[in-house]
């Protein structure tokens, strides 16, 4: 080469600095979810939305215990009252306290939303993951079933199920969950299919991992991202189906309040007593919006290309 030769270290070098100082702190073992949470926190709107949802859940649990009113008792001396110190959100056409009704409605919406979401996940992810991982005939059979579920109008189907199963909170969430998992199944299958192709699954097989270990330890943890994101959009979706059912009088059995029913009733008095529709509609919209923002935040957090 040239007249200058520079001695080069022949030892195996290491070099490079660790990603950041905190990693060297042995007391804080980092976990996958810790990293996700740190990324999620960076999106302020999502974080506020998450706190809002936590607040709503707390409200739905604690509210019924401490509220001075209940949702059943009519008070014909206090119909259509405007918001006051006694009734913060006024009263409805039966003289019931609006705040109480909204909180019960919230509780029911959350139960239906999370319950239906859980049912969707259980059925959808199981079917999708099995179809995607094992492929072949099983995939064919399962996915044709999914196609059929997808083709059927899910609102009508849940309506029929409600009629058959009866009208209570549990049957309604079941009806919604049972009819809307097809999208989740397709998503889970697509996720599993693409992860199955990645080298680390082959690496796991070459290390001797069994199918169940591969599915539960390597495939699913890496597939949950889009599934959770989708869930955070499906929960408000289920809430809307429930209000839709209530709106046409097939939802939760009165006098138990439901947001759909509240909005339905409120819409009749929209000119005379607008607070009857305004308050339920606003809380409903805010709740839906909060879930959507959390979904957005989750999507960003799961995007591994983001730096920490």
């Amino acid at each position: 080469m040239g007249e200058f030769t520079i001695p080069v270290n022949k030892n195996i070098d290491s070099g490079g600095k660790p990603p950041s100082a905190e990693h060297s702190d042995k007391t804080t073992r980092r976990s996958y979810f810790g990293v996700l949470w740190r990324r999620f926190k960076r999106n302020k709107i999502s974080l506020i939305s998450l706190y809002f949802i936590v607040f709503l859940i707390a409200l739905a649990i604690v509210g019924p215990l401490i509220l001075p009113f209940d949702y059943k008792t009519m008070d014909y001396t206090a119909l259509y009252q405007k918001p006051s110190l006694k009734h913060w959100m006024g009263t409805d056409d039966g003289g019931r306290d609006m705040l109480t009704l909204i909180i019960y409605g919230l509780r029911n919406a959350l139960i239906v939303g999370f319950g239906a979401g859980l049912v969707e996940i259980l059925i959808g992810v199981t079917i999708g993951a099995l179809a995607g991982y094992f492929g072949g005939r099983l995939d064919n059979i399962l996915m044709r079933f999914v196609d059929i579920m997808f083709a059927l109008p899910s609102f009508l189907l849940s309506l029929m199920l409600v009629v058959v199963l009866g009208r209570n909170l549990f049957t309604i969430l079941l009806a919604i969950g049972l009819t809307s998992w097809a999208g989740m199944a397709r998503l889970a299958r697509a996720q599993v299919l693409s992860i199955k192709q990645v080298d680390y699954i082959e690496a796991a097989r070459s290390l001797g991992a069994s199918n169940s270990v591969i599915i539960f330890r390597y495939v699913l943890p890496n597939a949950v991202g889009p599934i959770f994101v989708s869930l955070s959009f499906n929960i408000p979706g289920a809430m809307m189906v429930e209000s839709g059912l209530s709106l046409i009088g097939l939802g939760i059995m009165p006098p138990m309040p439901s947001w759909g029913a509240l909005i339905n009733i409120g819409s009749r008095f929209i000119l005379s007593t607008p607070h009857l529709i305004l308050y339920p509609a606003i809380t409903f919209a805010l709740t839906i919006l909060a879930f959507t923002f959390v979904g957005d935040g989750l999507r960003d957090a799961f995007d591994a290309k983001q730096s920490d």
């Binding site: 082959e202 290390l207 943890p221």
Partner: peptide, 29 residues
Amino acid sequence: AQIVFQNPYLSLFPHLTIGANIEEPLRIH
């Protein structure tokens, strides 16, 4: 018998730390 692939980013378990990645064969065995 072991294999090392072309793209290390795709062949490491993305949800596990470096330590856990290296320990994974021991866990499996």
